[in-house]
Amino acid sequence: MSLENQSYTLRVNNKSLDVQDAWIGESLLYVLRERLGMPGAKGACEQGECGSCTVLLDGEAVCSCLVLAAAATDADIRTVESIGDGQTLSDVQQAFVESGAVQCGFCTPGLIVAVENLLTHNPRPTEMQVKEALSGNICRCTGYGRIFDAVSVAVARRTGVSQ
């Protein structure tokens, strides 16, 4: 390959991972999926209009398709693979499973990251705060109803308040 390549190291889910000889135009989404074996973040629009590729970059939810991977070498990157411990589910993940918030599931990993991020910053969001926080995550299957329900369930469990 005669592309313009560079090697660098990313810090993903508390691990330093080497990226060898990668084209510098690669998005963080591509590098996670195709080079680092973490396909949890999904690509569905390549322009930040669907949220399927949401990851945490220094604690903020961003679209990994819009992050130039080679320029994110100083960032703390967290992906859906870091949520739960890999075996047991987080409360948000469990709520998604139980509430019917998953159909085809393509938007799900991005939503899980977005909801975890919301609840970290705002443990007791109002209905409208939930909707606004998730307004960048397109779901084509569910119509969002079961997703909102899942968030309510997760909030109730996390705060010990029944809603």
Partner: peptide, 19 residues
Amino acid sequence: ALRPDAVPKVQGKFAFSSD
């Protein structure tokens, strides 16, 4: 009954064709 594939889907482990 809950979806049997919901658990891998919420974990990002479910293999879509693109994965």
